[in-house]
Design a protein around this nucleic acid. Structure first.
Lengths: 145, 145
DNA sequence: CTCCAGATGCGAATGCACTATCATCTGCAT
DNA sequence: ATGCAGATGATAGTGCATTCGCATCTGGAG
């Protein structure tokens, strides 16, 4: 149960190349050149298996469906561009003082830091062509949970 | 278009009393004592209007549907309890160094910090009765530091 | 007290991310 | 080169949060 199909190879290559967390739809697009017949269902199936095997890891941002990145990267945070909806890695180290002010009895197991703004590309040009803004119109589900 | 119905009063009271972000379902429960016939659709409708009027504000956490809290609170972060799924305010001030390591050209408009762990209540007792764990089975959210 | 614009309750409907089904295809062990 | 377990593609189906449609109800101006 681990064949090297062109689809799986393309998916892994997309994630390795992107250097940033990709959504299933982005992975689908990025994989099409190498695996033209690839299907969204296959992307989901493959991501699930890669995640279970520990090769990749889900990246969840508020109000967004899961993206995926290679596991084993050094600890980092994420930057979400308002304009093109892409998510980038922020290599900065963990800020201290995160848990200041926490009432006693609360135990922190993990933390998430997300920066939001405009990326370098979008800061220059008003809109960034070639990258589809995903249609997340509704202000509500921002789930994320 | 702004009547003081028992439902709206109950919803506002719930949010004012809770001192923490509430999900629509939590608001429904919290409002029932004051407005026994209240309905989820009404909760959503009312939240939408309160948010538009600027009285409340959505709080979005990774992998979670929107919660709501009073707008105009001083800046704070949030703590999500793994065990009871409640979200608490963390009054701590903003850690510095958040934007260290950001590539040039990136402009930060906002940031989100979420702490995850177990709250004081859940740290004492294994499970907290009276608070339903919402059934979010999805394996997506588990990120490593 | 009356009346009606606006609010509510209820159930059905929508939108979206994701999964199941199943017939067909294909790595790869033999 | 062959056969088949496992993978894929196409599409229908799920589950969940949120919204719609509409008949009924009600706050509050008059």
């Amino acid at each position: 149960m681990d064949r090297h199909t062109s689809q799986r190879i393309a998916i892994e290559a997309s994630l390795r190349t992107a250097q940033r967390p990709l959504s299933p739809a982005e992975i689908l697009d990025a994989s099409k050149p190498d695996a033209p017949t690839i299907n969204l269902a296959t992307v989901y199936r493959t991501l699930k298996r890669l995640a279970e095997s520990g090769l990749i890891r889900p990246v969840d941002l508020p109000g967004e469906p899961s993206r995926y990145e290679l596991a084993g990267l050094p600890h980092h945070h994420h930057f979400k561009c308002d304009s093109c909806d892409r998510v980038f890695d922020v290599p900065g180290k963990c800020p201290s003082g995160l848990t200041d002010g926490l009432p006693s009895g609360f135990r922190v197991r993990d933390h998430e830091v997300v920066l939001v703004g405009t990326c370098a590309d979008c800061g220059h040009a008003p809109t960034r062509p070639g990258r589809s803004r995903r249609p997340r119109a509704s202000p509500s589900h921002n789930r994320g949970t």
